[in-house]
Design a protein around this nucleic acid. Structure first.
Length: 274
DNA sequence: ACGATAGCCTGATAGC
DNA sequence: TGCTATCAGGCTATCG
């Protein structure tokens, strides 16, 4: 499930693979992936366009092309990109293929078919609904304990729901939310407005720490995730609570519990996280 | 206005 | 063994 560290890793690998390449043709086998514009327009506009930059914003991947065009791509749960040669066998669940003029192909695979692509003018990206509503980047300097504290004072919902809210912080998903809260010794179920500024300080610090460390090792491969080069991440080895239910807590030895919070499977140590 | 929840979808796994 | 039910989760739409 690509979250910020996984999308960042995919961005970094794709930069090496497709920057500067020119699209000759786009094949779309599952039209629902292309949200906007109509598939035929999507294909026609992209013909002859060159990939000039790849940017990550939250969990979104932005392919910046010449002529003021940008593909806004969201991988959702299992979306993935890989560069292939023309005679490489096409993997199951490949839905979109970008054929480049040099004979290579960027293939988009997505088992669950939840991913989306929008083709919009680059100058309109910041105002695009899905991008405009995003909160701040957790690794930027403006994500501070004070920012978090200001946000949570107004919120009745759980701190876990706050961390998952892309309109507050962009990029955290279910895995890293659980890991951040464990390391911060904060219960995922606690109402956000009950937290102190010290709690916010811990959460802020651990958010940056966990995300940076995960990026360093190429993300977490819990299910299907691989980077643009087909390589798995390694952070799943450092997960202390996610999918660790039934196992002893690394800090106190109590049994890690699993429950449901904010509509998500939530893993925590009942002894360490109050 | 806000928070909670269903639905989208396939594959892995649990349960009978 | 083989079938069915459940779960996984990011986001949007819809409900209360």
């Amino acid at each position: 499930m690509p979250e910020l560290p996984e999308v960042e890793t995919i961005k970094n690998t794709l930069e090496q693979l497709v920057l500067g390449k020119t699209i000759e043709l786009v094949q779309v086998d599952l039209p629902r992936i292309i949200r906007y514009p109509a598939v035929e327009d999507f294909q026609q506009i992209l013909e002859g366009k060159r990939i000039e930059a790849i940017i990550r914003r939250g969990k979104f991947l932005l392919f910046q092309l010449n002529d003021n065009w940008t593909i806004i791509s969201h991988l959702r749960m299992e979306g993935n990109y890989g560069l292939f040669k023309s005679d490489d066998p096409v993997a199951k669940h490949t839905h979109v293929i970008f054929y480049f003029t040099d004979g290579t192909q960027l293939r988009y695979r997505d088992t669950r078919q939840f991913g989306t692509m929008d083709l919009v003018n680059t100058s309109d990206v910041a105002n695009h609904k899905s991008i405009a509503n995003l909160g701040i980047e957790p690794l930027e300097a403006n994500f501070t304990e004070q920012y978090l504290y200001d946000q949570i004072t107004k919120k009745q919902k759980s701190i876990k729901a706050v961390l998952l809210d892309q309109g507050i912080i962009a990029g955290i998903g279910n895995i890293y939310a659980d890991e951040i809260l464990f390391r911060s010794k904060v219960s995922p179920m606690i109402a956000a407005n009950k937290l102190s500024i010290e709690d916010c300080s811990n959460i802020c610090k651990n958010t940056k720490l966990v995300l940076k460390e995960a990026i360093k090792v190429g993300g977490s491969s819990v299910k299907s995730y691989v980077n643009g080069l087909g390589k798995m991440g390694m952070f799943q080895q450092q997960l202390l609570v996610y999918k660790q239910n039934g196992k002893p807590c690394a800090v106190c030895g109590s049994e890690i519990q699993k429950t449901r919070t904010a509509g998500r499977g939530t893993h925590y140590c009942p002894n360490c996280q109050k």
